[in-house]
């Protein structure tokens, strides 16, 4: 009785049959959910990464600049356009209110992305496939992406980073 104390001996009341069925079912489902997350790491191909490196603005900017210089193929709207070799490290920088550089990738190849911000928190939101990750300052988040389809993708920011937050859009092109 929810507003008055329970009857004496409440602790010893037998659990009703349907409640037992339900609790049993719920328990199985719960353990199933737990197993799903683990098994997906074994059999699934979309798992957030294990790797984060500690870094700082200075170090990350140096790596970013060297990376862009090495693979730069052009410019678009003031953004460097970069075409890295497959299976290499790719550096993407988040800064109010830009995602840099513009990347050209090859379908079916893997790229080891290094994502970091040089100021606030930003949200790496890859559209239109809708994959979302957080980007922190002073933390290098390493995510190995393998694009599965060619096309033009956009990276929008989905963590509030100041009044120009909605202007923060980057671009990734995936070629056949």
């Amino acid at each position: 009785m929810s507003a008055i104390p329970p009857k004496e001996g409440w602790y010893y009341t037998k659990i009703a049959k349907e409640e037992k069925i339900w609790i049993g079912l719920a328990l199985v489902v719960c353990l199933g959910l737990f197993a799903t997350m683990i098994l997906w790491h074994v059999y699934g191909k979309q798992n957030p990464s294990f790797t984060t490196y500690k870094t700082n603005v200075h170090e990350f900017n140096a790596l970013y600049d060297a990376f862009v210089e090495k693979y730069k193929v052009g410019e678009e709207h003031g953004f460097a356009v970069v075409k890295p070799d497959p299976n290499t490290d790719v550096f993407m920088r988040a800064q109010i209110w830009r995602w840099e550089p513009v990347l050209i990738l090859k379908k079916g190849e893997s790229y080891r992305f290094h994502l970091a911000s040089t100021d606030f928190l930003h949200g790496f939101s890859l559209q239109p496939i809708n994959m979302n990750f957080m980007v922190y300052p002073n933390h290098d988040y390493v995510l190995t992406f393998t694009p599965t389809e060619a096309g033009e993708y956009k990276v929008i920011c989905n963590e509030f980073c100041g009044v120009g937050h909605h202007l923060m859009v980057g671009k990734i092109v995936v070629e056949e």
Partner: peptide
């Protein structure tokens, strides 16, 4: 957290 590896 580890720093970025030197060889990288």
């Amino acid at each position: 957290l580890p720093p970025i590896p030197e060889d990288l």
